[in-house]
């Protein structure tokens, strides 16, 4: 009898955990390549808190498409790093079980908390004396911040857009194959009667002049 009750309780607990981890997430706001609806919900909830609209830098994280940037970033990562980022999402989302957010229902999933609770919850991770918690916060904020800065409007607003520079190829650049195209640039240039040797020698002469 006692064993059956324990089994039932265990089953209920597992069911609760399963629903908590995977249940009830809305579809993501846009089509995504790498992030699933759960990850999109967690990142979106964090983006709203970290980069709200307003202030002297008006652009919000949503307007800057931080979620889209994250998705593109995660999509091209190796499987190990993708796994680490998914672990990060899980830690933030379910961490309320161990470190509830202040206020009523603070044990709910991070993405289900009010914006105010989410802000306080993340702040507590950032200020924690426990290194692992602080590391989670720092990593999350770093990922989102890099996404925010990838928006040219943000860079312009901050006066930190890359300067206009002529992309100057060195003579030696003509020796190397292009990154993403079949066939070597060297061969192509040879076939078209172009640079290599003369360019390289000129470059070398200039270098020796400098030295």
């Amino acid at each position: 009898m006692g064993g059956s009750i324990l089994l039932a309780l265990l089953g209920l607990s597992l069911g609760f955990l399963a629903i908590r981890v995977v249940g009830g997430y809305p579809p993501p706001p846009k089509e995504l390549r790498a992030l699933d609806r759960r990850e999109a919900a967690v990142f979106s909830a964090a983006i709203v808190v970290l980069f709200p609209a307003g202030g002297s830098l008006a652009r919000s994280g949503e307007e800057a498409d931080v979620l889209g940037h994250l998705d593109r970033f995660v999509a091209v990562l190796g499987s190990r790093n993708q796994g680490l980022i998914r672990l990060l999402v899980l830690a933030v989302e379910q961490g309320t079980l161990l470190f509830p957010a202040p206020g009523q229902g603070g044990w709910r999933r991070f993405s289900a908390l009010s914006a105010e609770q989410r802000a306080l919850y993340l702040a507590s991770w950032g200020a924690s004396r426990f290194y692992g918690r602080r590391l989670v916060f720092t990593s999350l904020r770093a990922l989102l911040t890099m996404g925010y800065f990838s928006d040219p409007v943000v860079e312009d607003a901050l006066g930190l857009a890359p300067r206009q520079l002529p992309r100057q190829a060195s003579a030696a650049d003509f020796l190397w194959p292009p990154l993403d195209e079949a066939g070597a640039r060297q061969r192509r240039l040879r076939e078209s009667g172009g640079l290599p040797e003369s360019g390289l020698l000129a470059d070398r002469a200039a270098r020796q002049g400098l030295a």
Partner: peptide, 18 residues
């Protein structure tokens, strides 16, 4: 890169943006 340097700035929300 500014996005990398920004990691050491404190705060979140509007304070972080400031």
């Amino acid at each position: 890169p500014p996005g990398v340097l920004a990691m050491r700035l404190p705060g979140q929300g509007l304070a972080y943006k400031e």
